[in-house]
Design a protein around this nucleic acid. Structure first.
Lengths: 107, 107
DNA sequence: CCAATCAATAACCCGTTGGCTATTGATTGA
DNA sequence: TCAATCAATAGCCAACGGGTTATTGATTGG
């Protein structure tokens, strides 16, 4: 079973790829050329990363003449936030249980 | 430059390892043996994953006799939450469908 | 004290991944 | 029309990561 989290975590795990995504979040829509100029890797490498990001639903592409514009799709981050919140929730509920238990034991 | 996010994303990217962490969040402290029984991989594999999780600060270990107990360290998730929040924040001026996301974050 | 149990380490294998260069295809401008 | 530009694809390679079995080191129980 491959969950949505798998995709997201795996996609964002690579620093170069995550930097590209961060840049799209910070600065909005960018062409492949603009992204390549800053990425520190070759254009094909950037294109490959963009392909992975797109596959994960983290970016959209828009073709205009011979250039392609990419932009971040923030809603794809929702499962990530949900997961993090869930983990925190589980942890807190256990903590509450423990407090509960200790209170009872005090009596 | 290897940031804290790098560690976290890379560590949580593997499904087996993430499942181990999730179990520790849900059920609290567990021995290596207990984790191995559920993990679907060998004990050395589990130990290796626990080592990576520990390195990332996501778990603590406690030795008791010949067994080792591991527990989740929720604090380590903070940078992940911050990062996600930041990405959402950068986005705020642009977006289309941010509302869902903000609802989740408010909770 | 010896056998058994528990977890970590060692040594190895193999698939995946991220990088590269070269090329192709499409679009533009002169 | 033809050269130049932009991005994607192809093909290759080296490094890394997650898995395995075998072993070691500690601790416990009989």
């Amino acid at each position: 079973m491959t969950t949505a989290h798998d995709m997201l975590f795996r996609t964002l795990a690579d620093p170069t790829r995550r930097a590209i995504f961060e840049r799209l979040c910070r600065q909005g829509e960018q062409t492949v050329g603009a992204l390549t100029a800053q990425a520190g890797v070759s254009q094909p490498a950037v294109s490959k990363h963009l392909g992975v990001l797109k596959e994960a639903g983290l970016v959209r592409d828009r073709h205009e003449g011979r250039q392609t514009h990419y932009s971040a799709q923030l809603k794809a981050l929702a499962p990530l936030m949900d997961w993090t919140r869930d983990m925190a929730g589980f942890w807190e509920s256990r903590f509450d249980d423990l407090e509960d238990l200790l209170k009872r034991m005090d009596q």
